[in-house]
Amino acid sequence: MSLTLEEVEHIANLARLRLSDEEKERYRQQLSAILEYAARLQELDTSQIPPTSSVLPPRSVLRGDEPRTDLTLEQILANAPQSEERQFRVPPVLE
């Protein structure tokens, strides 16, 4: 299972990762090896097996509708790399 460079670039794009050419090639090889190894799962017949998305049983875990003012507002804003007028600032989307 060998990934092409285009596939690596596509994934890196989906994941918003800027990669150097060298990185792209390196990951191409490494990911291909890992996926090759992962392909052995196809040996198993799972047609009658349900997927496990959680090891816990289904359960209604619900919260009441009472509001709580969070005391951490200022600290949340304090972590921002750039902010203005209580809002987080980012550059525009350019074409």
């Binding site: 992962a38 799962l41 196809q42 198993l44 799972t46 097996i49 349900p50 496990t52």
Partner: peptide
Amino acid sequence: AYYAKAQKVRTLIK
């Protein structure tokens, strides 16, 4: 082929 399959095999392991 990958994620869904892995979740099913997880059931087998459990």
